[in-house]
Write a protein that binds this DNA or RNA. Structure first.
Lengths: 144, 144
DNA sequence: ACCTAGTAGTTGCTTTTGTAACTAACAACG
DNA sequence: CGTTGTTAGTTACAAAAGCAACTACTAGGT
């Protein structure tokens, strides 16, 4: 193998981010996929509603940085699983308020536990300072 | 909006990783997509060959953690663009050595510049210590 | 030589995503 | 009232990813 020493792929931030996100994300996905047959976008919508309360699909798009078609399909899937209900807002019938059903909230709370355990297992490999820096940097990177 | 205060989505590591990876990755993708019509997996294969020298598709799979079908299709696409050539190894005709063509190497070197500039713009928002910690933690997370 | 098991890589089919066009509803202005 | 522009959400079609079955080849017995 001949190599080019001017660039180190292992030091390229987007590549590292992708590898880490893929590794952790796919392991975590297997949990909610096997338990509830949910896709990643469905999990995100569920968690947005569970963590931040009722909102419209548009709100989810803005908060999560997801395209509206993705959210639309995830909402349909969650509605079909009877995890949420849609209520047209009378003051503007274009919007619909999304609300978790009792079953949806139960699933959310169950998955919150899994998420906490999973996160715990991840962060215990690092010091508190490292985790603090990681979170700070990731949040900034996501907003750039 | 009613809310559940027991879990903070913004503190969940896989979610943060995903948001940061998505934000930076999609911006960077637009560069090589517009310049060379490459997909993310094609970019990765190109960079593996460019950075680490000739190898087989299997080697790329192992190093990059990609499924062989994804790599197979990326290799076909890069071959069609005349960015690489495949050479069956005489000692084991199941393997094929992948080699960048002159055009492939030119594209690689061009994109290395873009990658360096891009990375520079990312990391200049942070201190050296933060970047060092970030890289360390991301590498470990990718290997867990 | 033959049979079995395993590997590198491809192909076909299904699921998921991305993009753009669409519907329905509102708002502001003439 | 229209007409124009804008927004929330859906749908239809194309591109891409995931998965399983397949081909071609090698290796290791027997």
């Amino acid at each position: 193998m001949t190599q080019n020493d001017t660039f180190e792929l292992q030091g390229f931030t987007p590549y590292l981010l992708n590898q880490a996100a893929e590794a952790t994300g796919s392991r975590f996905q297997s949990i909610y996929k096997s338990k509830y047959g949910m896709l990643r976008t469905e999990w995100r919508v569920l968690f947005h509603l569970g963590c931040y309360g009722d909102m419209t699909a548009k709100d989810v798009c803005d908060r999560a940085g997801l395209h509206k078609t993705k959210v639309s399909r995830a909402v349909s899937a969650l509605a079909q699983k009877r995890f949420l209900e849609r209520h047209e807002l009378p003051e503007d019938r274009r919007h619909e308020r999304l609300t978790l059903t009792r079953a949806g909230r139960r699933a959310f709370e169950d998955l919150v536990e899994d998420a906490q355990n999973f996160d715990q297992q991840l962060i215990e490999h690092f010091s508190e300072g490292e985790i603090e820096t990681l979170r700070l940097v990731l949040k900034k990177l996501a907003e750039l």
